[in-house]
């Protein structure tokens, strides 16, 4: 059994990107200034504040959100044995987005500081429950269809919120928010969403053995002692927590959950269990890299993170489909 050092290499790449993210921004903050060598005390203080209050929470948020998306994508692809599955499959990201939009435009976000992530999570869980209830007793296809239909419901709800928004900027703002971004976030939001993302990822990490067994199909997996209904419940709960919390802060960031598992799968002999950790690290790395990209690109308008991941992810997706066509029987 070949063992490539996949995890250490990915972890190292992630560490490099994390540090790079701390040094990337609209304005170049030279390390000397941060460490106090320039003699400009106020400048140093400011540089440190920017680093600690802006860039550090941003990098951590990017890391956690990317990890959540990558892991969730890997788990869902393992569950459905379909390489085109991704975190939005169960409709959870649409539900989280709707919850966050309601929080912002009902004014709750102004009264209760952490209303947005909380309502986003509520939306994610509500969607998860709906999908689970709708898909209960049916097979994988029914579950996927249930997720798709519930997602449509949530999107309709978001469109309604847009329509009834109290001020004319709303439509523009919701669509901008939905494009996805981790800019200008703070420790407050990370402190709320972070624990949920960690718990969700922990739930998802433990599904490895079951996903391996599922490679043989549901009947054989059950004969190996896998409790399928419980597995589905666990996966939905983990996804709702991790992806729901992430989406409620960042908006909809697409393609990372689809792409990250694919980038690493061939390195681990396609084993579903062994994909999990690398996909988590890869998702975090890809998101951080994209976020660095949005800050380095010399454009007049700010490029949203979700737009960049879409621009890169969609061609990748197309290439994937073409490859599947070639290798499929």
């Amino acid at each position: 059994m070949r063992t490539r050092p996949v995890v250490p290499v990915l972890a190292a790449a992630l560490a490099v990107l994390f540090v790079a993210s701390l040094f990337t921004g609209r304005v170049w903050l030279p390390p000397r200034e941060i460490l106090g060598g320039t003699g400009d005390a106020a400048g140093t203080e400011l540089a440190r504040l920017i680093l600690v209050e802006l860039r550090l929470p941003r990098a951590l948020l990017g890391l956690l959100a990317g990890a959540s998306l990558g892991l969730c994508g890997a788990v869902l692809q393992g569950l459905t044995r379909n390489p085109l599955a991704e975190p939005g499959l169960l409709g959870i990201s649409s539900g989280a987005a709707l919850g966050a939009v309601i929080a912002i435009y009902s004014g709750l976000a102004l009264e209760v500081p952490l209303a947005t992530p909380l309502l986003g999570l509520a939306g994610a869980f509500l969607t998860a429950l709906l999908t689970l209830a709708l898909g209960r007793g049916g097979g994988m296809l029914v579950l996927i269809l249930a997720g798709s239909s519930v997602s449509g419901l949530m999107l309709a709800g978001t469109a309604l919120a847009l329509n009834l928004a109290p001020n004319p900027y709303a439509a523009y703002e919701i669509s901008q928010w939905l494009l996805g971004s981790i800019a200008d976030k703070s420790w407050d939001q990370l402190a709320l969403a972070g624990p949920f993302m960690v718990i969700g990822c922990a739930l998802l990490m433990g599904t490895g053995r079951a996903l391996d067994a599922l490679a043989l199909g549901e009947l054989q997996a059950r004969s190996l002692g896998i409790d399928l209904p419980r597995l589905r419940l666990r996966i939905i709960a983990g996804t709702a927590l991790a992806v729901g919390a992430a989406t409620s802060i960042t908006g909809a960031i697409g393609f990372i959950g689809l792409v990250a598992p694919h980038l690493v799968r061939h390195l681990v002999d396609y084993e579903p269990r062994r994909v999990l950790v690398p996909a988590t690290l890869c998702g975090a790395a890809v998101l951080l890299a994209a976020d660095i990209g949005t800050r380095l690109l010399p454009l007049d308008q700010e490029l949203k993170l979700g737009v960049l991941t879409g621009l890169v992810g969609a061609p990748f997706f197309i290439a994937l489909v073409l490859r599947l066509k070639r290798t499929a029987p």
């Binding site: 043989l216 199909g217 004969s223 002999d269 396609y270 084993e271």
Partner: peptide
């Protein structure tokens, strides 16, 4: 039950291109 009993359906399939020795190892899952 899984530790004491093994079951194979008709035309069993493997959905991922994993190495044969990994496939065999799946029998140890329980």
């Amino acid at each position: 039950l899984a530790r004491r009993r093994a079951y194979l359906p008709q035309n069993p399939r493997c959905d991922w291109p994993i190495p044969v020795e990994r496939l065999v190892a799946l029998g140890l899952t329980p």
